[in-house]
Structure formats: C-alpha cells, structure tokens
Write a protein that binds this DNA or RNA. Structure first.
Length: 291
DNA sequence: CACTTGACCTGTCCGC
DNA sequence: TGCGGACAGGTCAAGT
C-alpha cells in the first residue's frame, strides 16, 4: 500500500530523526526480509552513522558513513518506525492507535538499535518487503533502480515527458501504464485510480486513444493528487504509518478508491469497482467513459 | 509485444 | 463457532 506519498512521508520523518545516529546493534528474524544481512552487517552497518535518508520511487535509502546504503522497500504492509529511548522505556503519552510503546510486535523483522538507545523497527505483516545493504556505487546498477522511470513530482518532469513515455506503449491500457514503474516511478493502485477519476479518463482507455488535452489533464491530476496525499499524511487502509507510527488520512478525501456503491462527488452516479490489470479498479462510469 | 497468472505472505471478512 | 475461500495490493517471473 505505501506508494510515493506514503514513502515520501516516511522519508521526511526519518530524515529528521536519523541523521547523526550511529548503529550499535542489528537484529533480524526473517531472512528473506534482509537477504544479505549476515555478510555485510558487521562490516558496513554496525558502527556506521546515518547521513541522510532519500527516496527513489517507493524505495527508501538510508545513506551511511560507510559508503553503503540501507535500502528498504515496504511493498504492501511494511513499516519503518523510529522510537526514541524515552518512549521505549515508558511507551506512554502517545495516542492509543500509535504503534509507539507497542514495538516490537509479531510483525517486526528487523530492529536497528542506535548508540543513544533509540531504535528503528522494520515491521511487515505480509513479509513482502525487503531491506538490503549495498555499496553506494552499486545502487544504480541493481535491477530495481535501473529500470525505473522518472519521479512524477520532479520539477523538470512535464506533461510532454509523460506523453513521450506513454507513446512508447500505444496499445496499453492507461491504468496498466500508470502502475508500470518503468513508465513513471511511484504510482500504485490508489493514486492511479484517483488520478484517472480526476482527469475523467476510463482506466481501460488505450493510450493511443488519449488526445494531448487528456494527457495534460492526467499529468496535472497526478501531480495534485500526489501532493494532496502528502499533505494529508498519506493513505492508511490498515497498515501504513509514518516514521513515528502515525496513520494518514488521505482516504477520507479519496473520490473513488474503496468507494464503490457510493455517489460520485462530481455527478452523483454510483462508483463501480472492476478488475483491471489484476487489480481492483474504482471509477465513475459516467465521468469516465471508455472511448 | 501486450496481457494474464502465479508466487511471495498474513489477516480479515464472508458465506455456509 | 469453525472452516474454506476470496481478497487485499507491489513486484517479479513465467506463460499465453
């Protein structure tokens, strides 16, 4: 479930909390979550200082003083939550739905303890997520990063760039293309449905049937949907929380996602849910006509 | 090349 | 109350 806005919020939070802290201890209990943990942790993670937290697509990157990076992908149910020493000891003073004071729990797979006693928890109920320690120089070469398209919120990414990338796949349905990380990086199921509703485009529209005006609208919709989601703390369906264990409220503002059977806020027609690209897909059948 | 299906996992919900 | 099955959605690999 974490898509670009959620991962960006976690990045922002961690980048406030982690830089300057030195790793003292690493515990992990699920090998697939951290496949190269044995070989490199002692050499490049223990004793290293966190310098900066960055993001590419839906991946978080903790830059370390050891010239390595700890890369994390949250996939659908992953969480990366920081807890300071005081909260670890007392746990109190936080809202009842906050995770702080309740960690580790049964979904905790990795615990990083810093020299000052604070901890970073990697939780993942469904165990799809992963952490990997890689030399900085190798980051651009791993498959995951190599094939990614541009960041939609980069200032130099324009609607014409979007058009050029979409035109490489004229016969693809627009929703499939939005979900394809090699076309644009960071969009997932929630924000593709929301962007398409906002631009009044049916998710199954073939790209060759989209005039420039629609692609421009889609570009604008995508950017404003992503920015609104960041402003609202992201979308929490079940699992997503930020770097301090707080949930996001964007789904309260969603127009179609998980709103099948409710009325379209633009025209009053009932929102429907179909299956497309193997995913639940939500749309207004009147606003979003298939051409 | 476009598209679908299955795999990876667990928790929740629905119908019987 | 318990049980089986469908479903949730990010990514990759394999099949149509």
């Amino acid at each position: 479930m974490p898509e670009l806005p959620e991962v960006e919020i976690v990045r922002y939070g961690l980048n406030v909390l982690l830089p300057g802290r030195t790793v003292e201890k690493v515990e992990f209990n699920w090998r697939k979550s951290f496949p190269n943990a044995d070989t490199d942790v002692n050499n490049f993670l223990i004793g290293a200082k966190v310098e900066e937290v960055t993001r590419r697509a839906k991946a978080l990157i903790l830059k370390l003083s050891s010239q390595n990076s700890l890369v994390t992908h949250l996939k659908m149910t992953g969480q990366l939550v920081f807890v300071d020493k005081k909260s670890l000891r007392f746990g109190a003073g936080h809202p009842s739905d906050s995770l702080i004071g309740k960690l580790p729990d049964k979904s905790t797979h990795v615990i990083i303890t810093f020299k000052d006693g604070s901890k970073l928890f990697f939780n993942d109920q469904r165990k799809f997520g992963w952490m990997r320690l890689l030399p900085n120089a190798e980051l651009p070469q791993i498959d995951f990063f190599k094939k990614l398209g541009p960041e939609p919120l980069n200032k130099d990414f324009t609607w014409k760039d979007l058009k050029a990338r979409l035109n490489h796949r004229p016969n693809t349905k627009i929703k499939s293309a939005l979900l394809d990380q090699s076309v644009i990086a960071g969009i997932g199921n929630i924000y593709s449905d929301e962007s398409l509703w906002s631009a009044k485009i049916h998710p199954a529209t073939q790209i060759c049937n989209l005039p420039d005006t629609k692609i421009k609208k889609l570009y604008q919709a995508m950017v404003s949907v992503l920015m609104l989601a960041i402003e609202k703390g992201g979308s929490t369906d079940k699992n997503y929380v930020d770097a301090e264990g707080r949930r996001g409220s964007y789904l309260l503002f969603a127009n179609v996602f998980r709103r099948e059977g409710q009325v379209c806020s633009r025209c009053g027609t009932l929102i429907i849910k179909i299956r497309l690209a193997g995913r639940g897909t939500h749309l207004c059948p009147k606003c979003q006509r298939l051409v």
